[in-house]
Design a protein around this nucleic acid. Structure first.
Lengths: 338, 338
DNA sequence: GCCAGCAATGTGAACGGTCACATTTGCCCA
DNA sequence: TGGGCAAATGTGACCGTTCACATTGCTGGC
């Protein structure tokens, strides 16, 4: 055996030599080119597996100038929702032979946004998924004049042609309506951070549903998505108890609220109703189990890849808006007297 | 301007031409080669920024046969802990000019493990981080005879030279001891899934601490990390109320337990103490706030990259075991009479 | 029996970097 | 004044694939 004892991994030409064909034929086998005689194909495949041949992605990327990679730009990837979507994106991409590369941006460090974008662009990703629906991210995106397609999750308004979203407003209206139907007239809203697009959408949904039903509103309180914030906001609100229900813009903040209300010795929903948004898996086990709005993050991630890479063969494009679903549990009940 | 109106992105040679140097000089500027005259460097840099030149990663990878990418193989990336570690890994890697590519494996589909590994290897990652500490993942890893270094998070035993871990056993002993010190003698343990290494380690810590203190033990119950499981396990256990404390192997299952105990009309910690593991951010707002063990997932992710790529310049290698910390909150108290 | 035309395969040149080595320049010191 | 040596730069090959185009062999219609 004149075995090539060099440490080099076998290339297309090594395979070609052993299979007694040209390197191009090997390439054709790899790419499922139609006009290859079955016996030739088999011979090549046999040599490939014998040599444990693996195509060199870099070489392919170089000549095709396609990286077969999509980038994910994400804030708060530790949260259940984004994390679920990321996992779904990864799965859908992998199914199509794509790789996924992530860059997390820090909410505290503004420069991390352009940094993250640059990092992914340097990787020459073919598409970008943005799961960081903050206004300033869009500014950065616009400023860079990306030459790759991108999709943003959960942000209908700013950039309609790129957006794929759960209809946050509809969800917010759903749950607000639920409270109104239960007789609540004094409802507070704890919103998400100011420049988060989905926070804004939920807030708008809340306000619109309130005014559509002629219920007077108070100014929403801007939170930061954490249970911690919900807790302190709750303590603050309870000093003047002029409400019977609170709609928190996510489940974590709702959890903090429940905590604060209990600390005050009050009952949910007896004294105060609390509703959240997202339906994280834990929400069903809060005390009391939380009424909330379910979003299908997984579906969202999957469709996101469709939108970016074009729908998989045969599957026709689904509408780009997913309507969320109200999940009624025990944290909401008839309005108490104040 | 004989501008190259071709759609091609500028290459090192385009820059060279405009800067009136050779392509190799441009390459040297890119790679911070020492012997370049400052004025030459400036000229080249100027042209690069004018042309918006960006090095082609594939070309570099091809010739150096280094992908500058590390792969993350992860199960349960939607959980707070793994997600935090992933974010930290990504940040640390990016700081060193590395990219991160993830592959999630499904707990339900065994073939997803070799698939995920193959996917990352096809990407020719230079290192692998495994955040899926399941026994069968290690088997798959061993079977593949990887030619890249890898590190596994949270699994001391199986593979000591590759492991980097929070000392799960120490954490489990800490919290078990806490219960024993409070006078508990009838303690149940809800463990994680059977083939999860960290579940196993926590269970061992529990059993060892129990027997070190001559407290009789009952067989641990094997759960699946979810609040849902904790809830049903709790309901089941409460049919025969022969215990005063439960140690759940993670905070989610503890949440489910709290739910079940409340459903039964019992008080935590008055009747039963409950402790968890991980200290997810929400744990402080459970009802009652949960006594648990804090793991620094972020630090873990950071060190993990050090271990894989070698510590950053000047920083000396930290020990590869991180000791977790007991966080006492209100869910644990003196043992009640049964 | 000839040639068009297609199926199957081969040939050589990219792609955009880095590597190894060659060449030029500038400076110091004998 | 010239030789040597290091600093600064240039030259051409190469990495492993795909692309565009060329070549071969065979089939079928007239």
């Amino acid at each position: 055996m004149s075995d090539d004892a060099t440490g080099r991994r076998p290339s297309i030409r090594d395979v070609a030599r052993l299979a007694a064909v040209s390197h191009q034929t090997v390439s054709r086998v790899i790419n499922n080119h139609p006009s290859i005689r079955p016996e030739t194909r088999d011979r090549v495949l046999a040599v490939m597996s014998e040599l444990q041949y693996r195509p060199n992605r870099a070489a392919r990327a170089l000549v095709t100038s396609r990286s077969q990679t999509i980038g994910i730009l994400s804030a708060s990837s530790t949260q259940y929702g984004p994390a679920s979507s990321i996992a779904a994106i990864e799965a859908a991409a992998r199914e199509r032979g794509y790789w996924v590369s992530t860059a997390n941006i820090s909410p505290h460090d503004p420069s991390s946004i352009p940094d993250g974008i640059a990092h992914l662009m340097a990787q020459s990703v073919e598409g970008l998924v943005v799961i960081a629906p903050q206004v300033r991210v869009f500014r950065a995106l616009a400023a860079q004049q990306l030459d790759v397609p991108y999709v943003t999750l959960q942000s209908t308004e700013l950039d309609p042609q790129h957006a794929l979203s759960v209809d946050q407003m509809a969800g917010a209206r759903l749950v607000t309506r639920h409270l109104i139907d239960l007789g609540h007239r004094n409802i507070y809203h704890i919103a998400g951070p100011q420049d988060w697009i989905e926070a804004e959408a939920r807030m708008r949904g809340f306000l619109e549903e309130m005014s559509a039903n002629d219920v007077p509103t108070t100014a929403p309180i801007l939170g930061d998505w954490t249970a911690e914030f919900g807790y302190y906001a709750g303590r603050e609100l309870l000093r003047v108890r002029d409400f019977t229900a609170i709609f928190a813009s996510n489940d974590q903040m709702a959890l903090g609220l429940l905590h604060a209300i209990r600390d005050e010795g009050l009952d949910v929903p007896g004294d105060i109703s609390v509703v959240g948004f997202d339906d994280i898996p834990d929400a069903a086990h809060f005390w009391p189990p939380l009424t909330t709005v379910r979003q299908d993050f997984t579906e969202l991630g999957r469709r996101c890849v469709d939108l970016l890479l074009g729908p998989a063969d045969g599957v026709e494009p689904a509408p780009t808006t997913i309507v969320p679903e109200l999940v009624v549990r025990r944290s909401s009940g008839p309005a108490a007297r104040i």
